[in-house]
């Protein structure tokens, strides 16, 4: 009885918090109409979506991609080129970028996932440099090192220039979160998490590990590509060295890790905590590379000290407190009695 009402309260608090956060997110551009704060808002929501996209692969399967900036960049270039060279409707091209990058990721994923673990990391890292070389070399299409300038969005005041992009990224974030949530509950998601635990065992239980990994990778890359598409239309300019650098990908990793790769909202939380801080650092000390050092140190510290990230760590700490306060948990008692029966077995 008691636990039933506790559960109801818990559910109420959970949904209430979620609703409040959604309202805050929707109202943000008018709560803080200052253009700089709006800019930081767009950046934050962008990275919330990107980090969650990255985690779709890494959080589920345990495969760490170092090169997600490549997918971001390909999405951005695809959208930019379609708008500039072929005069296509911008937001339709943003969606098309997702499909294009997804198809691209099928090829890359097929290559990268042929062997386990290490080669995947290496291929994703190399991918960034392949794309950098392509973007620099294929001048006729990409504009080479001088980059590509896009027409700005028409019919919108300077004051409100960030607002449509804020909402575009917010929609992306919502879609990625929903997809992650859905997968997390599905049979498919169970298979993915099993892959992280023990790939051979998962295969022995009928999980088509190669296909599962590829699908997760393609979804993760596709969403990242959409992010790149929105980004290029927002910034109106793209050049190879910015998008095809390791930095954007590493930012996604850092945020996802900080918040917690094992939780739905972890990566988004990580982005929410880090982006404003990073923007401040770049604003104040941008020329000194201090933000790079701090990024490195923070990443190292998380790996060594808090590998689970904030949300799962808090959750397990809470579970500890809970079980301590409610005496020996039923699970523990049950394990114990079985252990007695087994005795010599261990």
């Amino acid at each position: 009885m008691l636990s039933g009402s506790k559960e109801a309260i818990g559910r109420f608090v959970k949904w209430g918090t979620l609703l409040l956060l959604v309202c805050l997110a929707l109202a943000y551009p008018w709560l803080f109409p200052n253009p700089y704060l709006r800019f930081v808002g767009v950046m934050t929501v962008m990275y919330m979506g990107l980090a969650t996209s990255w985690n779709l692969m890494a959080g589920n399967t345990g495969y760490v991609s170092l090169g997600h900036s490549a997918f971001f960049g390909v999405g951005a270039y695809f959208t930019g080129i379609m708008i500039v060279r072929f005069d296509m409707p911008p937001f339709a091209m943003v969606a098309a970028a997702g499909v294009f990058v997804g198809l691209f990721a099928i090829v890359i994923g097929w290559l990268a996932l042929r062997t386990r673990d290490a080669s995947f990391v290496i291929v994703t890292l190399a991918l960034v440099y392949i794309m950098l070389l392509l973007a620099q070399g294929w001048r006729g299409l990409t504009g080479g090192s001088s980059g590509l300038s896009l027409p700005r969005m028409e019919g919108i005041g300077r004051e409100d220039a960030h607002v449509p992009f804020y909402f575009a990224f917010l929609i992306l974030l919502a879609v990625v979160l929903f997809t992650t949530w859905w997968i997390g509950r599905s049979k498919f998601g169970m298979g993915l998490v099993a892959i992280r635990g023990d790939e051979d065992k998962a295969a022995a239980l009928g999980v088509n590990t190669d296909l599962y990994k590829l699908i997760a990778f393609v979804l993760s890359a596709g969403f990242t590509g959409i992010g790149g598409g929105i980004y290029v239309y927002w910034f109106s300019y793209i050049e190879p060295f910015f998008v095809f650098s390791i930095t954007i990908g590493v930012n996604m990793i850092l945020m996802a890790l900080l918040g917690g790769t094992r939780s739905l909202f972890g990566p988004a939380l990580g982005a929410l905590l880090l982006v404003p801080g990073t923007q401040y650092l770049i604003g104040e000390y941008g020329s000194t590379q201090l933000h790079v050092v701090l990024t490195g140190l923070l990443l190292g510290a998380i790996v060594m000290v808090l590998p689970m990230g904030i949300i799962p760590s808090l959750r397990s700490a809470a579970a500890h407190l809970w079980s301590a306060s409610s005496g020996a948990s039923s699970a523990a008692t049950c394990t114990e009695s079985d252990e007695v029966a087994e005795g010599v077995g261990r």
């Binding site: 890494a58 495969y63 170092l66 590493v250 990793i253 790079v292 490195g296 140190l297 190292g300």
Partner: peptide
């Protein structure tokens, strides 16, 4: 394997910065 990738990435970035 993956955690060491992240750790050495962190080292690389720290050195670079």
């Amino acid at each position: 394997t993956m955690m060491s990738v992240l750790l050495t990435t962190a080292l690389a970035i720290t050195i670079e910065g």
